[in-house]
Design a binder for these strands. Structure first.
Lengths: 213, 213
DNA sequence: GTTTCACTTGCTTGTTGCAAACAAGTAAAT
DNA sequence: ATTTACTTGTTTGCAACAAGCAAGTGAAAC
């Protein structure tokens, strides 16, 4: 029941207490967002579902935007790492294809965390400036990764140097967003999603081989 | 000041009254959604901004989901027509390229209506079933249009018959959604958006010529 | 043809319940 | 003891609904 790193025990350092309540509220918020969407998720419920008082989420995160930014940061960081891990040291098109494959696997695997992450991602079109900043930041990092993969392919002589790195990367990222949207509205259409990812890989390959765009 | 179709006059038929209040509330809601996002838009403000009471929007649309569904339907219908008008009787790739061009023009033109429309579009990932239905419906109609354009190109012998019509159409629509997302987070990056649309046309052309996907 | 009256429909105001936000307090760690 | 984690009390504001008021409608009576 009780593990080495305090799971249920009493005496905890202050840092451990906040880390624990943060983690529990993160879980609670993810579950609630999946159940009721971001608008239907209340700070009160997040606190209570995490096993605390109605006020804790408000106190910790200040407001809904603060909570959402925290969630995006937490999950987004993990996930960028996961994607990079999946790509490992592949270069060029292979790296991009590995990323696309990993993306497909992650979403059909259907973890609540990723779903909540993307639900909040689409909230970033709202007026909350903090959320906008955090998502824009992740977006930019993701795009940079893709540019770097293309770059590595060029460096390895496997992609012609004339290619528009940033253009292709942006197209790729935009397509991913489009696919994610489709996943969110129809999470179980795995075959459809697989086809979209395959098609994306195919089109990206064409863009990196052929033409001048 | 007073036109033939009662603009500011007194005596109105009941149907005219509702049509007028609907139109005014639509305008008000569009403006509010652009200013504050969908979550920040209150039924109270919609009613009052339209020049009525705080309660009217609630009474007319029942709840926020009802209002949003009404907006999507109103603007979405208009817009599908506009897109079709832009495509006219073009066939195959030309039709798709015309649609992409029109799409680009519409969004950089930056009408509040289209922005509000797409903001609500992304709300459809939330739990509101009515909104989901309405958006899914528009999405499906749009996809059908694209399939029909491809079909017409095949019929005209300008696209090879083996092409995966639905697959390419879905890829196209997914990419449009991705582009729209980028527009919503950075509305003024016209050159970037132009490049994304150009790239989309290019990739779609490749998909319709080459390969088997 | 116009007046009247029963009825419908558009709209407003009153009320309740709930969540966000913040302040002030309590308990636990340092 | 003092800082820090967390809770509880309170205010404000919106959604949702109900009850009422006012404007429009249609048909019978005159």
């Amino acid at each position: 029941m009780q593990s080495a790193l305090a799971t249920d025990h009493e005496k905890r350092t202050q840092a451990e207490r906040t880390a624990l309540s943060d983690a529990r509220m993160l879980d609670a918020a993810v579950a609630l967002i999946c159940e009721r969407g971001s608008a239907g998720t209340t700070l009160k419920d997040v606190g209570e579902r995490a096993g605390y008082s109605r006020g804790l989420a408000s106190y910790r995160f200040g407001n809904k935007g603060g909570l959402f930014a925290f969630i995006i940061r937490s999950i987004g960081d993990d996930w960028l790492k996961e994607l990079r891990r999946a790509v490992q040291d592949k270069v060029g098109l292979e790296a991009i294809e590995a990323a696309a494959d990993a993306h497909y696997r992650f979403i059909v695997e259907g973890s609540d965390a990723i779903r909540a992450f993307y639900v909040l991602w689409f909230d970033s079109i709202g007026p909350d400036p903090e959320l906008q900043r955090v998502v824009a930041n992740i977006h930019e990092r993701r795009r940079r990764d893709v540019v770097a993969w293309i770059e590595s392919g060029v460096a390895a002589g496997r992609i012609r140097p004339g290619v528009d790195r940033r253009g292709v990367a942006e197209q790729f990222c935009a397509a991913i967003i489009g696919i994610v949207y489709q996943w969110l509205v129809a999470p179980d259409a795995h075959e459809h999603l697989r086809a979209l990812h395959e098609s994306l890989k195919h089109h990206t390959a064409l863009a990196l081989e052929a033409g001048s765009t």
